[in-house]
């Protein structure tokens, strides 16, 4: 089967490459581009560890072929911090509110939360819980992830956030 030329913008950088049609987007990112922050957890599109932002949508990159993303604009966890290294509000929030333990679900969780806050800058707790329901975490029980996202929302909105991590 012939390889296919794909072109996308990933974390602000134009990327061109040849891929097998069956190459999953997650493998393209991890193996061909070395962007290993995006993880594989379940293989069946249930866990969300492979979530990236694609054309302003949260998608599971283990259930998409790289060719389907031809022409797309993609943001991965590696593109979240500012070029000067300043952490994104979500990255800061996850640390401040103890929103991670083993760290394996964290990139997917942050990428999903990023899109959630873009669409709903001031979500309720229930909206956050529904909003991240495509992402599984085995360590935290989600409670501090919710707080991490609330922290980030407050920071992005420029209002104080008082709640302490439990």
């Amino acid at each position: 089967m012939p390889k296919v030329q794909v072109k996308m913008t990933i974390n602000g950088r134009e990327v061109e490459a040849l891929v097998e049609p069956r190459t999953l987007l997650v493998h393209f990112l991890r193996e061909q581009l070395g962007l290993t922050g995006t993880h594989i957890g379940c293989d069946t599109s249930h866990c969300g560890a492979c979530t990236v932002d694609l054309n302003d949508m949260s998608v599971k990159s283990c259930a998409l072929f790289a060719v389907q993303a031809n022409g797309a604009t993609i943001l991965t966890i590696e593109g979240m911090a500012a070029p000067d290294g300043t952490l994104h509000a979500l990255q800061e929030g996850f640390r401040q509110m103890h929103g991670l333990q083993c760290g394996y679900c964290t990139p997917g969780m942050i990428m999903r939360a990023h899109r959630l806050l873009k669409e709903n800058p001031n979500p309720s707790e229930d909206e956050i819980r529904s909003g991240i329901s495509g992402n599984l975490c085995r360590c935290t029980g989600y409670q501090n992830i919710v707080k991490s996202i609330q922290y980030a929302a407050a920071k992005i909105n420029g209002v104080p956030y008082q709640e302490a991590a439990e």
């Binding site: 922050g37 952490l87 640390r95 991670l100 760290g103």
Partner: peptide
């Protein structure tokens, strides 16, 4: 640990 984990 979070400094590296939150940045992938």
């Amino acid at each position: 640990e979070d400094i590296r984990f939150t940045q992938g």
